[in-house]
Design a protein around this nucleic acid. Structure first.
Lengths: 248, 248
DNA sequence: CGTTAACTTGAATTTTGTCAATGCCTGTGG
DNA sequence: CCACAGGCATTGACAAAATTCAAGTTAACG
């Protein structure tokens, strides 16, 4: 959640020549140099002065908050095309760390703001971006507040499947560690592991190595995720959040 | 969370004569008629076409999401001065119900958008409003993902105390039912009740009827809420989120 | 003042977490 | 290319936390 608007497609278009016709939020990053971060490296830290906005170009970031006694919460995973730290205050609200090898572009906050001012057609984009983040946050709150361990894990797999399955294949990558998954779902690694094992033995998923699974029965997975709306005729590629461009 | 910016003070100013000098988001509602809702009544329903934006004038609203099997999550309580349904999509993302007797004003979404367009000085307000909602959402995610029942209850009391205590008195109102608290904190009524009892018997709080408590030891409460930053020299009225007006 | 819903309390159960031991990828260096 | 090491992941036994179910109380409201 929090910035999971994948505008990678639009992004492609606008590279090189950011025409007014298809200018978008990602355009701002197109001339910035690419920076690389290795697994575990932090892109920025919670509490630091928020000087930049980022675009993920490659790899996966985790958005982390830590309680004073070390308990860790991952509030989001960011994928290529996502913008990080858009909704911000004076200081970063969280730490962003590379899960895999990651490439990002950065844009100074000032410049980002200036561009938004200069090109009013960007405002609705920024706005709907924030609104989708809010919707995603609410989904996560529901998951954390009321779902069981199994429902949490199934919801997680399903969310990734809906966004990243390759074409018809129902094989998906889980590049993050079990600890990352646990801290995202409010569980322990052991519970995540046991749940995955159970799903495998029941034929819902099949694991191909530690970071790759294939979904054997998407309907069952959806049911176990606690999404069964009686009708249950959801397609894997359904769009959950209808969006309207704001006119501001 | 989600819209807890209490601008009641600013609101007072702008009533009657919404001068440009102190125009704010609340100004838009100042000429709207006041509507009343009794406890339990819904102001709008999740999924309905989002035709209005609301301002709470009096009383408390709960923001509710329901899973298909009836499990309920309250993602926010809204207080006087709060704006509801600002960050929105095509349809409402949640149901809003009156906890107490509630008075609200509504503003057609179209008009709200037009006004934002017409008075650019409102945009930064809208923006920082959304950003604060995001920050609050993240706090709630941390609470739900990693805090114990006792930490959750203490965090909740502390949050209300920081916003609504009357002057020096550390007596606060908890107008919502135990079920509402439970659905907000991801617990059961029994667990909430037991925790409150335990806090009372340990002298952290004292209850004056079911919906009113006084805080006996704010430092202990803060420690039990899991906020102890070693330093622990926080004041009850500290502002947790520093905010910067956006220039968009 | 009586009714009733809301709340509290207790006991048993379930779920998830903790601790500890083992197993298995993955990447490194021979 | 293989062997090995070390980090992750899995599994099991047990413990703790929270939920569930079932009575009791209390307080709010007519």
């Amino acid at each position: 959640m929090f910035s999971h608007v994948n505008t990678a497609a639009a992004h492609q278009q606008s590279h090189g020549v950011p025409e007014a016709a298809n200018r978008n939020l990602q355009s701002m990053f197109s001339r910035q140099p690419i920076e690389s971060f290795g697994p575990g490296e932090a892109v920025f830290w919670e509490g630091d002065r928020a000087a930049h906005v980022f675009e993920v170009t490659e790899g996966i970031l985790r958005v982390v908050k830590i309680l004073s006694d070390g308990r860790r919460v991952i509030t989001a995973f960011m994928h290529p095309g996502d913008l990080v730290s858009i909704s911000l205050q004076e200081n970063y609200l969280y730490t962003a760390e590379a899960v895999t090898s990651v490439k990002i572009r950065r844009c100074a906050r000032n410049r980002f703001q200036d561009e938004i001012t200069r090109f009013p057609e960007l405002r609705p984009q920024l706005f709907s971006h924030l609104c989708e983040e809010m919707a995603a946050a609410q989904e996560q709150v529901v998951l954390l507040a009321r779902k069981s361990a199994e429902e949490k894990v199934c919801s997680f797999i399903l969310k990734i499947a809906r966004r990243f399955r390759q074409e018809a294949r129902l094989e998906i990558a889980l590049p993050m560690s079990r600890l990352d998954m646990a801290d995202y779902l409010g569980l322990t690694i052991e519970t995540v592991s046991r749940t995955m094992t159970s799903l495998t033995s029941r034929g819902v998923i099949r694991s191909n190595g530690r970071h790759r699974i294939s979904i054997q029965c998407i309907r069952k997975l959806a049911r176990l995720a606690g999404e069964s709306d009686d009708e249950d005729n959801q397609r894997i590629d359904q769009t959950n959040v209808r969006q309207r461009a704001w006119q501001h």
